[in-house]
Design a protein around this nucleic acid. Structure first.
Length: 387
DNA sequence: TCTGGGGTCCTAGGACCC
DNA sequence: TCTGGGGTCCTAGGACCC
């Protein structure tokens, strides 16, 4: 007898950041609203009663759209789009700065609400989770309705849920009836509901793979399903070819992972304007040190030390390079991190303008209590870039 | 109108060791 | 003094995701 299929839910909050902002500013409901950018705009009046909100057209800078309301999406404004481009499409849209504290608060609320009756939860970021419902009693659609209701009662927000035998299909399903959707799918529904969709809908197929598949004449998931395994393996390699084939057939045995340890921690910043390593040396050096200090704080706050320290540079032409260095002993000390990052920096030619600088710690571990890997809190910092 | 910040996983070459 | 082979670590880059 075949084992009964799992019941895996994927829950995705609808336009999450923007929806949280609408809780705060209900008068913006129904308007195109965009969350993004880095700071509140200067000159924006905040009068009580008749509040003036900044418009997208007033924005100047390097920010991107983090979330847009469905009204803004109707104007062509989507996540990850540059705000300057978004302003061309929707100059009158309201632009609000991101308030991650608020989003984290609502994130905790909705996850806690789901956990009260479906505790096997995999965190997929601030606004998404997978939930293993296999052992939760109740009829599937009813469970879905109860989860949505619990989320709404806890947060005042709507979400979309897909429930299928695995994570891959549930992720696709949760998107099918957004917003406020509840979509149940069984393997028999694959040809009718999944195969007509573009391959890009498969989580893990991005712009590059979509492009390459397109060149091979494959645009729909059904076409991918009918491509011979050997053909896919020949073009994408053994592993990826097999994965593409299985994904198109709705096969995915990955478990819901309820706990995982972080692998790396990083801090990076894109400058307001491109900076030259020599001409803007002092400003860059201060930024670099500040990134190291914040990274060290992040490590300490979360109780980790890192053994590999790396840097990331993005040149003005958007070319990105990384360098890293593995230390003899792991550390969370800002001065140690700064020194290692400085060593990495010395391995790069610094004759072009930069737009981004980042620092990363990987090879994380939890330090032994009292070990020398956990040095005193404050240490002296070298404040100059290596020459 | 140029493209944020925080992550994960995979690949691949060279060093190094047995 | 012809070119073995496997395992692991380190490093760099890239695709992808939220």
């Amino acid at each position: 007898m075949a084992p009964s299929p799992r019941r895996i839910a994927h829950l995705d909050m609808d336009a999450f950041y923007a929806s949280v902002e609408l809780l705060r500013y209900p008068e913006l409901r129904g308007l195109p609203v965009v969350v993004g950018g880095r700071q509140v705009l200067a000159g924006t009046s905040h009068r009580e009663g008749s509040r003036e909100f900044p418009r997208l057209r007033e924005y100047a800078g390097r920010g991107v759209v983090t979330t847009s309301t469905y009204e803004a999406r109707a104007l062509g404004v989507f996540s990850a789009m540059g705000l300057m481009k978004a302003a061309q499409l929707a100059p009158e849209a309201i632009l609000l700065p991101a308030d991650f504290e608020a989003y984290r608060h609502y994130s905790r609320l909705f996850k806690a609400a789901v956990a009260t009756f479906a505790p096997r939860i995999e965190d997929r970021g601030i606004d998404e989770i997978y939930v293993d419902l296999s052992d939760v009693p109740g009829e599937t659609r009813d469970l879905g309705r109860r989860i949505k209701q619990a989320v709404r009662e806890a947060t005042g927000l709507s979400c979309s849920i897909g429930i299928t035998p695995n994570k891959l299909l549930s992720k696709i399903a949760s998107d099918l009836e957004k917003p406020d959707g509840l979509t149940l799918l069984a393997v028999e529904d694959l040809p009718a509901r999944i195969w007509p969709l573009p391959v890009r809908k498969i989580n893990g197929i991005g712009p590059k793979a979509t492009e390459k598949l397109g060149e091979l004449g494959i645009t729909a998931i059904g076409q991918l399903a009918h491509a011979p395994l050997g053909f896919l393996q020949a073009h994408f390699g053994g592993r990826t070819g097999t994965w593409l084939h299985e994904a198109a057939h709705g096969i995915d045995e990955r478990p819901v992972v309820t706990h995982s340890e972080p692998k790396s921690v990083s801090r990076e910043t894109t400058f307001e304007r491109d900076l030259h390593p020599r001409h803007d040396r002092e400003e860059l050096s201060a930024l670099f040190t500040s990134l190291c200090v914040r990274l060290a704080e992040d490590l300490r706050r979360n109780g980790y030390v890192g053994r590999t320290i790396g840097i990331k540079l993005r040149y003005a032409d958007f070319r990105t390079v990384t360098r890293d260095l593995t230390l003899p002993e792991p550390s969370s000390d800002a001065a140690v991190i700064r020194r290692a990052a400085g060593e990495c920096l010395r391995r790069l030619s610094l004759d072009q303008k930069l737009r981004l600088l980042g620092v990363r710690a990987s090879g994380l571990s939890v330090p032994d209590p009292g070990s020398p890997a956990d040095p005193p809190r404050q240490a002296e910092l070298p404040f100059a870039l290596p020459t």
